[in-house]
Amino acid sequence: MRAVVIQFPGSNADFDALHTLRDVVGVETSYVFHKTPTLPAGTDLVVLPGGFSYGDYLRCGAIARFAPVMADVRRHVERGGLLLGICNGFQILTEAGLLPGALTRNAHLRFECRDVLVRVDADGPFTQDLRGRVLRLPVAHAEGRYQADEATLQSLESKSLVAFRYVPAATPDARLPANPNGSLHDIAGLYGGPRRNVLGLMPHPERMAEPILGGTDGRLLFHSAVRAALAR
């Protein structure tokens, strides 16, 4: 299996994604610079990492979709290749039209960095055999409030494309609402693409993949992606 992490100017969780894939999960992984017109041959998984691509100027993710590498990323998706957008990567996917809806300013208007609980609500290549399981993952964003029109939300629900939803802890803390940003339908992540091969999510699974960083729930997504790639 071969993975690549796209480096846009302003990407800053590129190392997090590379490190987890390469050093924790053991996948051959390399960076691809945004000015590169084509992905390396044999790429199974493309990661659009977290960060502030193009400074998040204009709107988060709005400029990255025009990057030279994105045309080949679209072809990769059409071929059924796996595409994972984490945080700013999720924002880029919505701006690029690869996932519906938009990610807007958190309801409380502040950047929020803490662990949250998300429930796996859909099957797909990144969540094989995980449906119903509650994962603890960190969020770190100022614009993660998922919004879409009613028809889009109904469509996402009826097609079971809501991959992750924020859920409360067993003993809720009024100061730490389960939904950290005010997302509609508590949406934390979405599947899309022709074969559910595109996943966008606001939490950072690549920052919760080692015991010394506080947990390993995030590793499950990458292991699932490795299985999916090997099965292709």
Partner: peptide, 19 residues
């Protein structure tokens, strides 16, 4: 000080072991 440090990304770069 949670109101303060929750506004900081204190985990980027996958190194923060004691937050």
């Amino acid at each position: 000080r949670a109101w303060i440090y929750r506004q900081y990304d204190h985990i980027v770069r996958d190194g923060t072991m004691v937050r």
